[in-house]
């Protein structure tokens, strides 16, 4: 019978059965894993778009950061609220956290877009917005919140409505600026579409030009 594993065997008769080097292979695989993990953590620490590795559990203080609206606890429901299964509790941002807003991928935004369960804000320049944007999105240029807030916020009377801000994706901070402006104005459910306009276009989802009616 032909040996299962015999590195130097040229024929079955001359083959000396050599056991599969499981221990050596597993050791080298472990080394590869450790090296990759070490390199990845180091890269992430110095990379400009690196992420926070430390796990931060959701902190519920009983009050929102505005101090006026009680936060919904999952597991409890007030008579006026929806079922806790339908309505997610809003995590209170931790103090000093650079980007406390939940991040959404293009799939998450598309699901909400299809359900029409959210308001989408385009944080790019008005010219870029007119060249193309997500259908139904309102233009709220992130670098000029004082100009755009009076135009957009009256169209968003419900401050607990889910609002998604996007810009150019990647390192773009415009959506973050919009999210902060909305948070300061008392909006409690603001999220950021991380991939932004490039991801939406790449996915081939519907787009529209000009200004929405």
């Amino acid at each position: 019978m032909k040996p299962k594993y015999s590195p130097k065997a040229s024929s079955s008769s001359a083959a000396a059965l050599t056991p599969f080097p499981l221990k050596k292979t597993a050791g080298q695989a472990w080394d590869l894993f450790v090296f990759s993990a070490f390199f990845a953590v180091l890269f992430n620490a110095f990379y400009v778009a690196g992420i926070e590795l430390k796990f931060k559990p959701k902190v519920f203080t009983g009050q929102s950061d505005r101090g006026s609206t009680p936060v919904t606890y999952s597991g409890f429901s007030s008579p006026a609220s929806d079922s806790p299964l339908q309505k997610k509790a809003t995590p209170t941002p931790l103090p000093g956290e650079p980007n406390p807003f939940p991040r959404l991928s293009v799939m998450g935004v598309k699901q909400r877009f299809d359900k029409k369960s959210c308001v989408i804000l385009d944080a790019r320049k008005p010219e870029e917005y007119q060249e193309g944007h997500i259908p139904g999105a309102l233009n709220f240029y992130g670098n000029e919140p004082e100009k755009f807030a009076p135009l957009v916020m009256p169209q968003l009377p419900d401050k607990s409505k889910e609002i998604i801000a996007y810009c150019h994706g990647g390192d773009c901070d415009l959506s973050l600026q919009v999210a902060r402006a909305l948070q300061e104005a008392g909006y409690t459910h603001v999220e950021i579409f991380t991939g932004g306009w490039p991801d939406w276009q790449k996915a081939g989802y519907p787009v529209t030009k000009g200004v929405d009616p």
């Binding site: 590869l32 090296f35 390199f39 992420i51």
Partner: peptide
């Protein structure tokens, strides 16, 4: 978070 950072680099080096 750690998985999101490590997996792509593990794939790359492997």
């Amino acid at each position: 978070p750690l998985t999101a950072v490590v997996i792509p680099w593990l794939e790359f080096f492997t």
